[in-house]
């Protein structure tokens, strides 16, 4: 609980509001951006440390751990994606570890980070109630849509690169009904199917994490009962966190694999 005089609605709203800077579209969620980049840097630096000293000799324990992740992603990509593309596997690794790390922030008890931020804000002379800190970046639609949009751009790029613009348009119009007067109908179907891919990617990750975060917040308001409930939900969430990271990764690979193949 942040403080006694707040109502439940205030408490929840406070927890679900981003630290925003700017106006209108040009608003930036500093917390989302900061935490996601922080997590991304943790990923890159810890993996880069291994990459710099990586050799085929006896690995250190940390190298073993990193290699397990890399190997896991590599085998997953190899079993799904059959073309030759040096981008796919590093892309999958980045998405998997980055999303996993961002999701893991969800396990930090819901008040820790916002409360700390409020104390720092108060110390710096701001009103604590107007200091917002929503730590988990994947509970922000901007984050998940950015990831999905990146994947979507790659899908379009590789579709056109592998099949040509003509081939891509043909794929959008000549199926499922291969009759010229139904091409417009095919096009609507295929465009919906195409757009559904990144949209479902973004919304699935966002929805799962947002719901999880919301339930953590609700549990945090139940007083003493929150301890066992929080434990149970955290255990369950421990399953959801890597699962959502993995689903996002594997679907990215599948979609890019589909973009490479002729139908």
């Amino acid at each position: 609980m942040a403080s006694g005089e707040l109502t439940s609605k205030d408490y929840i709203t406070h927890h679900l509001t981003n630290w925003s800077v700017g106006e209108g579209f040009w608003t930036v969620h500093v917390d989302t951006l900061g935490w996601s980049i922080f997590m991304g840097l943790i990923f890159l630096f810890s993996f880069r440390a291994v990459a710099k000293t990586a050799n085929a000799g006896v690995p250190t324990k940390w190298q073993c751990a990193v290699e397990m992740v890399v190997e896991f992603i590599d085998s997953t990509v190899k079993s799904t994606f059959h073309g030759k593309n040096p981008l796919i596997a590093p892309l999958a690794l980045t998405i998997f570890v980055w999303v996993l790390l961002m999701n893991l922030l969800d396990l930090v008890p819901v008040d820790f980070i916002p409360w700390t931020a409020q104390q720092i804000g108060a110390a710096m002379g701001y009103d604590p109630h107007s200091v917002y800190m929503k730590a988990v970046p994947t509970t922000d639609l901007n984050m998940t849509i950015a990831l999905a949009l990146g994947v979507f751009i790659l899908m379009i790029y590789y579709s056109i690169k592998m099949k040509g613009i003509g081939g891509f348009i043909k794929e959008l119009t000549t199926q499922p009904f291969n009759t010229p007067w139904l091409y417009w109908f095919n096009f609507i179907l295929e465009v919906v199917a195409l757009l559904a891919k990144p949209l479902s990617l973004a919304l699935r990750l966002f929805g799962n994490l947002y719901a999880g975060e919301l339930i953590f917040i609700l549990i945090a308001m139940t007083g003493l009962y929150q301890l066992p409930m929080h434990f149970v939900w955290a255990v369950f969430h421990l399953l959801v966190i890597p699962l959502q990271a993995f689903i996002f990764t594997i679907l990215t690979v599948v979609y890019l694999s589909m973009a490479h193949e002729h139908h």
Binding site: N18, S20, G22, G24, F25, W26, T27, V28, H29, T32, L33, S36, I37, G40, F43, L44, F47, R48, V50, A51, K52, A54, V66, E67, V70, D74, P86, L87, A89, P90, L91, L93, T94, W98, P137, D140, L141, N142, M143, I145, A146, L147, L149, G150
Partner: peptide, 28 residues
């Protein structure tokens, strides 16, 4: 939806490129 999306997209691209160039090849 706001400019955060653009920032995240840029971060995403940079991370993937860094990973592709400096992380993935030596480890694999």
């Amino acid at each position: 939806i706001n400019a955060t999306l653009i920032g995240e997209l840029i971060a995403f691209v940079v991370f993937v490129l860094f990973c592709m160039k400096y992380v993935w090849p030596p480890i694999i």
